[in-house]
Design a protein around this nucleic acid. Sequence first.
DNA 1: CCGTGTGAAATCGTTCACAGCC
DNA 2: GGCTGTGAACGATTTCACACGG
Lengths: 226, 226
Amino acid sequence: MATGRRKTEPVDPRDVPKAVVNRLSLYLRELQQLLSGGHATTSSSRLGQQLGFTDAQVRKDLAYFGQFGQPGVGYRCEELIAAIRAILGTDRQWRVAMVGVGNLGRALLGYRGFISQGFRVVAAFDVDATKTERVVEGVQVYPLEEVGRVVAAESIELGLVAVPASAAQSAADRLVDAGVSGILNFAPVTLNLPPEVSIVGVDLATELEQLCFSVANRVERSTEKS
Amino acid sequence: MATGRRKTEPVDPRDVPKAVVNRLSLYLRELQQLLSGGHATTSSSRLGQQLGFTDAQVRKDLAYFGQFGQPGVGYRCEELIAAIRAILGTDRQWRVAMVGVGNLGRALLGYRGFISQGFRVVAAFDVDATKTERVVEGVQVYPLEEVGRVVAAESIELGLVAVPASAAQSAADRLVDAGVSGILNFAPVTLNLPPEVSIVGVDLATELEQLCFSVANRVERSTEKS
DNA sequence: CCGTGTGAAATCGTTCACAGCC
DNA sequence: GGCTGTGAACGATTTCACACGG
């Protein structure tokens, strides 16, 4: 009803497969590279080829959300980038808090690529009193007890958990009590949180194990000829 | 032929779904916690509940690889841990190299949880001459040109790429030329490598975007009544 | 009685193939 | 001619339901 030229309605984003949203991020990354490499347009087959997907997959993925291409031409990079950003929700700034300013937390704070993409870390927390009341990588570090106050005061919506496994659940609980809507968890534990809070987990050990499995079970090179 | 009591043969590990292997890592993590919490055995329903999967899913996943439980009893944690380790290939030490000793690379080197799980970082590399010829977090840092020599000399099998996006492809190429079998890539680019090399990518921006999407499209709390 | 292992059924995601448009 | 958008076919994964074992 809003746009009159649409043939099919986009589906409810809530029942888009997780895998599709994942690929959307990859399309975005690739499109940004293409654009800065001087390409103004691309096609589903080119995009797919560079990422290892079929052209049909690329088109189907985008079809969940609307129509973005021109038959006979392809996709205008700039346009599609804006569209994917809007879909993912990264067309605005998200205010983020980091819990845990140890080795990993500090590195993530200093990591270019966070802020560039629409996320701004505006506060950090740690239990260790020797790390608090300081500014690390441009971010003020508060004692853990202040999560409630600061999250509210700074309108923080997302939390990053980079504490040891044993402290992760209680850190996450604090963030949730303070009102964040989503948590990116780097600790190697499964968090138990109310269903209205979104969780994404990144476990380095797990990733290494996946790699390991695939290396250990890869086709032996001497078995294959050509 | 090895064990006589098996009803069905495990399938070729190469055609186990990727998602199954991912969950295997989670089972392992949970089992280790259970064990260190004093639980000697568990069941598919308990394991599933703690991770958010169904009991049938847990049993089906394990069934790809053999039979590990006892009807009426469940799974002996210690036994299942050993079995999963063997499946993943982490029942032995893997020798690993880190390329890129910037913010992220240094943090990962110092990150407990890598070495504990059967991986040992035995060398690091960087282009920046001010960072080389030193020992960082207990690991010798070499100039990038020495990848070939050191990977061979140290029998390194896996490479971690923690360099900026623009340097990632050439860093990966060097590792592959030197003979590594798998690469864990932290740079936000898709690597183009020969198919016999396994690749796992971890992109922080991508993970944040997934979180973002799920938060932006979660059920509005005020919309729902009961 | 509880819990595993596993075919069969149901669900979900991907690929095919082609109509329509530039 | 090339490329998108999309229903239909296909393939893969998840869930169901139950026989069998401790």
